[in-house]
Simulated assay, not measured.
Amino acid sequence: MSTYVYGITASSHPPPAEGTGGVGEPPRAVRVLTEGALAALVSDAPEGLRPEDRELLAHEQVIAEASAAGCVLPLRFGSLAPDDRAVTGVLAERAEHYTERLRALEGRVEYRLAAGRRSGGDDAALRRALEPEAEDATVGTDAGGRLADVAFLVERTAAERFLAAVERVRRDLPHLDVRVDGPLPPYSFVEPGPAEPAAPRP
């Protein structure tokens, strides 16, 4: 049976509460695989998993609950590995990378912004206003007629300053419909992990 991977954390991270359920119906029990100083939050993968609201929420809830106790590198919905051994094998192989990412993302959250576009300079103006309040940023794909979605990595203690900067953008660029989503786990700042997203089913 395949292994479903929610995220990666330190082996010293508190385990999920007894009875924590993840994806699947009934929810599959969340468990911990440990390899050296690292651990992965996993469950058995249900057959025919689809990105339905209930499943997406279950995935996000596992990560949110674990993140409340310390840094977790979240993997995107549908991350599967052939079995438990494949997960621990990649944890061992990429231990240095994951350990560095855990250090870099400790105490950080992600905010995602998107906005309608009226002029070519709006994208640069938006980033110029917000990047000083963030530690990192990644730009998504431009979806016709909108500014490219931008994810900002923000220290938790700086969240209020970042949101105040968003409000200044709304005031200074009133023609933009600026939308912000967050705080979120830092999905956009974790490189591919020990699993690939499940292929969408027709």
Rank of each mutant, 00 (worst) to 15 (best):
T138C: 03
T138E: 11
V139R: 10
V139Q: 10
V139Y: 02
G140C: 00
G140P: 00
G140V: 01
G140M: 02
G140T: 02
G140W: 00
T141W: 02
T141Y: 06
D142A: 13
D142Q: 06
A143M: 04
A143G: 02
A143H: 06
G145E: 05
G145R: 07
G145F: 03
L147P: 00
D149P: 15
D149V: 10
D149Q: 11
D149T: 10
D149L: 13
V150I: 14
A151I: 01
F152Q: 11
L153T: 06
L153F: 09
V154N: 08
E155Y: 07
E155C: 09
E155Q: 10
R156L: 07
R156H: 08
R156M: 05
R156K: 12
T157L: 13
T157I: 14
T157V: 12
T157P: 06
T157K: 15
A158T: 04
A158N: 08
A159M: 14
A159R: 09
E160K: 12
E160M: 14
E160T: 14
R161Q: 08
R161A: 15
R161I: 10
F162H: 02
L163P: 07
L163V: 12
L163F: 08
L163Q: 09
A164Y: 09
A164T: 12
A164N: 14
A164I: 02
V166G: 01
V166P: 00
V166S: 04
V166A: 05
V166W: 01
V166L: 13
V166R: 01
R168M: 01
R168C: 09
V169C: 14
V169R: 08
V169G: 04
V169W: 05
R170N: 01
R170C: 04
R171A: 11
R171Y: 07
R171V: 06
D172E: 15
D172A: 15
L173D: 01
L173G: 06
L173N: 06
L173V: 12
P174R: 02
P174N: 10
P174D: 09
P174G: 13
P174H: 06
H175C: 04
L176K: 09
L176Q: 05
L176T: 10
L176F: 11
D177K: 11
D177L: 07
V178K: 09
V178I: 08
V178Q: 03
R179K: 09
V180F: 04
V180R: 11
D181H: 15
D181N: 12
D181G: 04
G182T: 09
G182D: 12
G182K: 00
G182H: 02
P183F: 03
P183D: 08
P183A: 07
P183Q: 10
L184C: 07
L184M: 13
L184V: 10
P185L: 10
P186N: 13
P186D: 10
S188H: 13
S188F: 06
S188R: 08
S188G: 08
S188W: 09
S188K: 08
F189Q: 01
F189H: 00
V190K: 00
V190F: 06
E191V: 06
E191D: 12
E191G: 11
E191H: 04
E191W: 06
P192S: 12
P192F: 06
P192V: 13
P192M: 09
G193C: 00
G193Y: 00
A195Q: 02
E196P: 05
P197W: 13
P197Q: 15
A198F: 01
A198T: 08
